[in-house]
C-alpha cells in the first residue's frame, strides 16, 4: 500500500485526465465518460482518507458509505444522461457539441 499522498496524487491525475477530456473532446458521449472518470477520482480520494483516518483502529466507514451513495447516484445519473443523449440524437441526428449551439445565440 502506498502513502496517502500517492493515492491523492493518482486520484488528482485521474481527475485531470477527466477534466482534459471534457474540455478537449467534442463527442457528447465521450464527455459523459470523462465525467464518470472525474466522479471516480473523487471516490478514490474519499476511500483513501477513510483508510488512513482510522477510528478506533477501523477505517472510517462513514466515508465509505458516502462513496456507496455516490456510486448509486452516479448510476441514476448515467441512466438519465444517456436517455437525454438519445432524445437529443433523435431530435438533431448529432452527438457533437459544436452542432448544438441553439442556446449560444
Amino acid at each position: 500500500m502506498g502513502t496517502l499522498n500517492s493515492y491523492l496524487l493518482v486520484s488528482g491525475l485521474l481527475f485531470t485526465i477527466g477534466l482534459t477530456g471534457v474540455m478537449v473532446r467534442r463527442n457528447i458521449i465521450i464527455i459523459f465518460m470523462c465525467l464518470e472518470l472525474m466522479l471516480s477520482a473523487a471516490n478514490l480520494t474519499l476511500v483513501a482518507f477513510s483508510r488512513f483516518g482510522l477510528v478506533n483502529g477501523l477505517p472510517n466507514h462513514h466515508g465509505q458509505l458516502l462513496v456507496f451513495f455516490t456510486i448509486t447516484v452516479a448510476a441514476a445519473e448515467v441512466a438519465v444522461g444517456l436517455a437525454i443523449i438519445v432524445a437529443l440524437y433523435r431530435a438533431r441526428q448529432t452527438v457533437h457539441v459544436e452542432d448544438l449551439k441553439t442556446l449560444g445565440g
Partner: peptide, 28 residues
C-alpha cells in the same frame, strides 16, 4: 487547465507532511 491543475496538485501535496507516512495497521 490540465497543467495548472497538476501544478497545484503537486504544490499542495508537497506541503502535506501528514500524508507521507505508511498506512496505520487495522485493529479489529
Amino acid at each position: 487547465v490540465a497543467l495548472c491543475f497538476v501544478g497545484t496538485l503537486l504544490h499542495v501535496l508537497g506541503r502535506f507532511p501528514a500524508g507521507e507516512g505508511a498506512a496505520p495497521p487495522l485493529q479489529p
